[in-house]
Design a binder for these strands. Structure first.
Lengths: 128, 128
DNA sequence: GATCATAGCTTACAGTTGTAAGCGGAGGCG
DNA sequence: CGCCTCCGCTTACAACTGTAAGCTATGATC
């Protein structure tokens, strides 16, 4: 398994674009990110290369352009990241993590109810 | 504010020791980590230096030993990290994060109830 | 007082990341 | 057919990270 827990911020920017678009040419990725990152196209190209070297993304050729696509799903990365954070920074203390999540973010209306539902579900499926 | 969101794994190992001990000499830090990391003492020393350069830890002298102490609390780092993960990887979708947290970890007995209590509390304090 | 162990300070060196320029080839325009 | 532009490929270079050895000073020991 690749080390999904330690993906750099810029790599993640790119993955986010690919996850959103499904597939995207280097140009599209660049255009999507440029307003945010201010990167030159070459820079985005380098990042795409490196991600491909790490086998986190792949590409097919369309004429002389490359069309990139992620090899990992957002869900895999999310899960690996949460697992890492929970283990290394929270010592597995799930409620503490949830607590910071609640206080650190804009809680959307309905989020709390949805979380409650998740807990119910877990409780039925689990052993608690 | 320091960039607490991007602390490397080894840095975090050290911070974890300091948070647990309150204060610790370089030797104590090393002895606490050596079984896990297998690092040489010099390596731990270097890491302590670098952390201090980043102003994440500081030290006082006790004879010829340095006694280190964290300058950031675990809570600050936890909060910054959760905020970062939630924003960059989860697009602010709090329930998704909680969902992975629930499925990624050993859920201790009582955790679910505690989380429910947190939600209740948040709901009273918040606007949802 | 001379020696030895140990503490921290300085230096090392390869790998990764941030950030990008330069080069060579393919397609389009005149 | 030749030139310009745009593409990806290769190279660059500084900062940071992983991992540690070497140097120097100081406290302990004989």
């Amino acid at each position: 398994m690749k080390d999904l827990g330690r993906i750099s911020e810029h790599q993640l920017d790119i993955l986010n674009v690919l996850w959103e678009y499904g597939e995207a040419t280097a140009r599209e990725v660049h255009e999507a990110l440029e307003p945010v990152t201010g990167h030159a196209r070459k820079t985005t190209g380098t990042l795409l290369h490196r991600l491909e070297k790490q086998r986190l993304i792949t590409h097919r050729e369309d004429g002389r352009e490359f069309v990139y696509r992620a090899c990992v799903t957002r869900e895999e990365v999310q899960e690996a990241t949460v697992r890492g954070v929970l283990g290394q920074l929270f010592q597995g203390e799930l409620p503490a993590l949830v607590n910071y999540a609640l206080s650190s973010s804009e809680v959307e209306p309905g989020d709390l109810a949805r979380i409650r539902a998740l807990i119910d579900e877990h409780q039925r499926g689990g052993s608690d």
